[in-house]
């Protein structure tokens, strides 16, 4: 019984792994077919988180300061996502309920990830408190 549960669990794990791989492949190839809307939105979500972290680190290293950093982050973040779904994947945003539905997917979380990374690096490298 226990062995069976274990087998099922490992099966689930490898299935999950292959699902992630398949999604990643799709995400990186242009004009992929997205049958499942949630899958595409998940890709956007995680792309945003990584983008937020990277931008936060870059802004902290430069260092960018003030409101311009926040505005620039929003512009770059939204711009990249827009370019990605509109030009790279060529998705019809009406299927998802308008462009705002895609553009706001995970934006708040990505924003907070960005701010945390920015503050951490800025405080560590450029201040002497």
């Amino acid at each position: 019984m226990k062995a069976a549960t274990k087998m099922v669990k490992t099966g689930e794990k490898s299935q999950n792994g292959s699902l992630i791989k398949a999604s990643l492949n799709k995400a990186l190839s242009a004009e992929a077919e997205w049958d499942d809307k949630d899958e595409f939105l998940d890709v956007i979500y995680w792309m945003r988180q990584i983008l937020g972290l990277i931008l936060g680190i870059v802004w902290g290293l430069i260092p960018l300061k003030g409101i311009i950093g926040l505005v620039l982050f929003l512009a770059v973040n939204v711009g990249i996502v827009y370019f990605y779904y509109n030009s790279f994947q060529k998705i019809d945003d009406e299927e998802y309920g308008g462009p705002s539905e895609i553009l706001k997917e995970g934006l708040m979380t990505s924003f907070s990830t960005f701010v945390v990374a920015w503050i951490l690096l800025y405080s560590a490298l450029h201040t002497d408190l």
């Binding site: 907070s112 701010v115 503050i119 408190l129």
Partner: peptide, 21 residues
């Protein structure tokens, strides 16, 4: 100058959501 609570709220906003996801 940033207080503990501000940084904690920001961290939680990002980390909790991602962990749930």
């Amino acid at each position: 100058h940033c207080s503990f609570i501000f940084l904690y709220i920001l961290c939680t906003m990002s980390i909790r959501q991602n962990i749930q996801k």
